[in-house]
Structures are given as structure tokens and as C-alpha cells.
Design a protein around this nucleic acid. Structure first.
Lengths: 116, 116
DNA sequence: CAGGATCCCATAAGATACTG
DNA sequence: CAGTATCTTATGGGATCCTG
């Protein structure tokens, strides 16, 4: 039996996971997507309020990043003052299962911590 | 219809996700767990080779962290030189579904990127 | 309202050398 | 082999102020 081809193993097993980590990495991105999953189309300020602790700058940066990755869309309305709404794309919504799973595990983990 | 109780919403929806992020956060922890999922009981050096790019220091730190969180066990064998093996705990294995899901999404994402 | 511009800092992570 | 110690750097993120 030949040794495992490590580089190939890496490409097939680890790299896709790294891709996801890169896309949703950082402290807030996943929570932003989660917020949009629950809130639907949401304005900037409203989104910020739904994620206690996040600053405007970080939210702005992360939203840009998510938009460039095709996860969300940004729509500007020419009101006065202007309003901007963010929304998950269909592609972004493919993250739903994953994110709910992450949250689910966290809930179980919380039970475990509390019952210790 | 009353306004949503934001703090409570936060606690129920966002905090569990943050918990998981904290536990698996950083650049490598998830890959370490993934490596142990695939490789089973694994020695330090072997684990390092299975995760190209990770340095000994980071691997060591992350393993300590995962051990303290009950995700993995560390077993020292009194050979010469000593060998140390790491293994997922049953609790750690509850992360399997989640981690495979993360990888799965990354694979689909990869397809999407390549076919653009 | 939605964010850009700045400044600042803590910390994660990399490089390297060393040890029981 | 399985780490630890030390140093260095990059950057993610926080705080604050400003603007169309």
C-alpha cells in the first residue's frame, strides 16, 4: 500500500475548508450573514443594531468583502438621506445550512458548559 | 406587534454562533480537527505534516487549546524518544458533521470559482 | 443615514534557535 | 520526537471624528 499523496490529500480535503474559512473568517462575517438570514433585506444601521458590538467601520468593510464574494447585494435608494439595503444573494443563501449548523453546535456546547 | 427584544435575540441567535467561532477560530484549529477526523489517533509530527504550512509552535498552542476545551486528548507514550498521540474525544467528534459541511461548501465554492 | 479617514493597539502567527 | 523560548511582523479590529 503506497503512502498517502499528502499534497493531493491536502488539496482535496483541507483546501476547501480553508476557502470557507477565508470567506467567513474573522470575528463578524458569519454573524452578518446570520443577521441577513434572519432579517432579510436590511439597512446598514439596522444590521449594525442586530449585531451588538460591531463597529460601523468593520461592518462596512465586511459587507464590501461579502459583496465582492457574491454573498450579498448592496442596493442604494435615492431617498434623503439615502438608505442602503443589504440582502443575501441566492448563492449567499447556500450558506444557510452551514451557518445554522454552526449555531446549533454552539447551542449544544452552551448546554454542556452550563451543566458542568 | 411588539418590537423584537434585541438583546434576547442576540443571546439566542448570535451567541451560540460566536461560541463556535471562538472554539474553532483562528487559521488552523478547524484544519487540525479535520486532520484528526481523517487520520484518527495521530502523532504530533505526523499531524503537522498533514497540515502543510502550520508551524510547530502554532500547532502546539492550538492543540493545548483544543485539549482544554475537551475536543481532543493528548497521550504521552514513554518510548525513547517519547511519542505523543492526539485523538478526538467523543465530544470532539460531534464536530464532524459541521466540519464536513464547511468543507463541502468550500468544494462547491471552488467549482464556482473555477467555472467563472 | 451610511460610511470614509485616521490613529492606535492587541494579538495571532511566522521565523529561528534551542532542549529533555 | 515533541515541544518551548524569544523575537518580529502583519493585520484585524477598536475608538473617534468627519462628511455627502
Amino acid at each position: 500500500m503506497p503512502e498517502l499523496d499528502r499534497p493531493a490529500e491536502c488539496a482535496r480535503h483541507l483546501m476547501p475548508a480553508m476557502d470557507t474559512l477565508e470567506l467567513l473568517g474573522g470575528k463578524w462575517k458569519l454573524l452578518i450573514v446570520l443577521g441577513l438570514l434572519y432579517g432579510g433585506k436590511t439597512r446598514f444601521k439596522q444590521l449594525q443594531k442586530s449585531i451588538p458590538g460591531i463597529t460601523g467601520k468593520v461592518l462596512s468593510n465586511d459587507l464590501k468583502d461579502l459583496e465582492q464574494n457574491g454573498i450579498i447585494t448592496r442596493t442604494v435608494y435615492d431617498t434623503s438621506p439615502i438608505t442602503v439595503e443589504y440582502e443575501l444573494t441566492p448563492y449567499g443563501r447556500t450558506l444557510e445550512k452551514l451557518i445554522l449548523e454552526i449555531r446549533e453546535w454552539g447551542m449544544i456546547h452552551r448546554q454542556r458548559i452550563l451543566s458542568e
